[in-house]
Structures are given as C-alpha cells and as structure tokens.
Design a protein around this nucleic acid. Structure first.
Lengths: 218, 218
DNA sequence: TATTTGTATTAGTTTAATCTAACAAATATA
DNA sequence: TATATTTGTTAGATTAAACTAATACAAATA
C-alpha cells in the first residue's frame, strides 16, 4: 500500500511523462514544489518498491507497476470529478481541489459504486480519459487549439489545466466542451486568436489559453 | 487547521466523554490503540492549541473550542454515512470504514452539498444525531434495550456500534431502525432476551447485543 | 500506615517526509 | 577546451507521530 505522499509522486510522474516517458528530478521537483534532495530520496524509495526505475543522474521513469498504480490514482481522481459534477451539482471549476483529496481514499467499493452510478464514463468533466480498473487509459488524438490554422473549424474536446481560475475564465466566455469553434485570425507574434463559437461571433483568446484547449479537427 | 491525527484524537475524546465529560489517558490510549506516552504528548499539543484542558495526572476534558471542532468532524462522518446509504446505495454495515476516511476531507462546500442533497438530515443511518454547522448536537433520550423490562414494547432508534460484523448480524435477523420490538423474557444471569418484532415471533438476543441497541419507549 | 497495583509522565529512539548547505556531475557557453 | 551554469546527490537537521524503558504518582489493599 502506498502512502498519500507516494501516490502524489506517482501521479506527478505519470502526468509529466506523457510526452516521452522520461522526467527529470528538476521537473518533478518544480511540479510538486518539493526541493530536489527530497525528490531524490523519494525516488530511491520508490525504486526499492519497483515503482520507478532510478539510476543516479539518469532521467526518471515509471516501471510498468508504477504506471499502473499511478493510473489507478488518476482513475480515482477523474471518477471523483465526474461524480461531483454529474451527481452532486458542482461546476467543473470547483472539483479539482476536492478530487485531489478524495483520490487518496482507500476503498475499491467506493469508486466502483461511483463508476456504476455514473454509467462507466470514459471521460472526466475536463475531457480527460478515465483509466480502467486495470490502469489502462485510451489515448487521445486531440490537437492543441494553438496548433490549428486560420479557417479551421474544430470541436472543443478537453482542457489541459483544471485550476479554478482558468475554468472560471472559460465559464465567463461560455466556452464548454463539445462547442464548435471557428478560427478567424491568428496573431503570429503572440499566438493569440480571434475565434467564433455559439453566440460569440468574435472572442479574443491569448496564446496561453489556446495552448490549454484541446480540440478535435472535423 | 488540525491534522488528520489530531482530528482522530478530538473525535475519540468527544465520543468517550459522552458520560461525564472526563476521559482518562488510559481510556483514550486503549480506544485509539496508541500507547499512553504518545497520548500524553498529544494532549500537551492539543492543550497548547486550546482544544483540551490538560493538567498532569488529572482527567482530560475537551474545551468548548475542542468540543466544537470534534463535533464538526463527527458531523462530516455522519453526513458521509447518510450520503453513502441514501444517495449511493451502500448498506448501513458498509459505510463506517469509508466515512472514517472521508471525514478528514477539508472542503466545507463538499459537506454542505451533501447536507443539501440529503435534505438536511438530523440523524445518520445508525440513528446517531448529526451535529449542526456550529457543532451543536441534539441530545438523545434513548434507553438501552438491556435496561428495559419484560413486556415492554419499544421502537429501535439507534445502534451504538457500527462495525460491519455487528451490523451484518442485525441484517441477518432483519433488525432495522424503526422496528417495534416486544420483550418476552429476560435471562437475569446473562442479560440475554427473547424478543418478537415484525415477522420474527421469537428471537434470542445476547446481553451484549441488547447493550448496543438503543430504543425509545412508547 | 506500608505496600502493591495500576495509571501517567519523562527520556530517549524510530520512521516518514521535509528542509538547507555543501559538493559532484553533466551540460552549456565563452 | 576551459569555465560557468544547471542539475543532481550526499550529509546532516527538523518535525510529527509513533514507540520502549524507566520512573513517578495515585489508588487500592493488606
């Protein structure tokens, strides 16, 4: 059984490793806001438990076991977010912090029941896929809005950041998952865009925002 | 903000102090399965925080602040148990362990929402009163079944133990809250009873079981 | 009252998870 | 290539929460 702390390290490794599977001590340290020596010693501990493959001065990598256990924590997080939104009436901007705590509850039955009541959802309220009970997660083929071209019409499929502030910003502009968005102009120097969607015929989105929106091309 | 550990000490003090308000280090130590020196040092810490009044070799007592904070943890526990039973379909024998973990979640909104969805319940699935947001709890005037006389007809109002084993035992005999129970005979040497209720015209209940059932006299 | 028994405290150790300071290795730059 | 910068590790300290062993106090009993 992993401690709450260990679960947080595994989760962070999983999320940071999306690209190439490798994570540096420095990255992990910054992401968790924990100093590097602490991270190094935790990596040794997780390596002992066969959850991380660790060699001095080499990049970190989850083992298959580590990846599975991380995915199961993420499963609990995402099921919780979905439950909070669908069954308890929370907004998608309110659920991250609560799920951050509930993901550490040790009770398979509790999460099984959520899954069942939700009808075995495949995605959470932010569009992220929910890993299955064995830790397998279906892979997304979404693009960043920032990688699209002028004239593209795309469907908003997911957001990569789930902080309250960012989601309130999207709420204020009625930007919801599933929306069709048309790209009118792109400012090449800062990556900002002018887009239209729903009743909004002309909204300006900064480059940062465009980076955080994942879309499906038609 | 109290730690999970501190919350568990407060809760234990609250529950043990039901009788006269005083608790010994020894009692608390046994209840929590933590050795006495550890308890002593935690009491000093909680006294520093003005949650417990502590003097060497004197009985322990929660301060008003301590009582309020303990009641709020118990509120979270009982709301959770009610939510698990009423909204998620768990049996009353399954909820204690899960609530034991969820009671430590720090999110007023989460428990407010539960309360609202449940319609502001006053009792949990085991018949225990749910403290209000200010930490006030209505006081029960129930009797133990073991204190009743032959011929009494009583209503089962609450159980004082919530372990899975004990509640499964009650389930197996279809003993549920609200039932009318008639006492047919009492064995004075062991306190066991022969009772009738619902479709059960003659069930034998041990003295221990009778001690754990709280009833309302008609 | 003296002694035994049970209860509580003190002192010192352990483990998990954090930190800072100092040093070492790897990478980037002049 | 030599040096500077960034990244990573080692060593040692700190805090919370637990422990054991030894000691002190309080209550019960002879």
């Amino acid at each position: 059984m992993n401690s709450l702390t260990e679960e947080n390290y595994l989760k962070a490794l999983f999320n940071l490793a999306i690209e190439n599977g490798e994570v540096s001590v420095n990255e992990l340290s910054k992401h968790l806001q924990i100093k590097m020596p602490t991270v190094t010693s935790m990596m040794k501990k997780l390596a002992e438990k066969k959850l991380v493959s660790y060699e001095s001065y080499k990049p970190l990598r989850l083992t298959e076991k580590g990846r599975r256990e991380a995915a199961l924590v993420i499963r609990k997080h995402r099921l919780t977010e979905m439950f909070l939104v669908e069954k308890m009436g929370f907004g998608w901007e309110q659920v991250h912090e609560i799920a951050e705590q509930i993901e550490h509850i040790h009770s398979p039955e509790f999460f099984e029941k959520m899954d069942e009541l939700l009808g075995f959802p495949r995605f959470d309220p932010h569009g992220s896929p929910i890993p299955d009970k064995t830790g397998k997660m279906e892979w997304l083929h979404y693009s960043k809005l920032s990688d699209c071209k002028i004239g593209d019409t795309v469907r908003l499929a997911a957001v990569t950041h789930t902080s309250e502030d960012f989601l309130k910003f999207l709420n204020a502009r009625e930007l919801k998952l599933g929306l069709k968005i048309k790209i009118k102009t792109i400012e090449s120097f800062d990556g900002s865009m002018l887009v239209s969607y729903g009743k909004h015929s002309s909204e300006h989105l900064s480059g940062l925002v465009c980076e955080r929106l994942l879309v499906e091309k038609e």
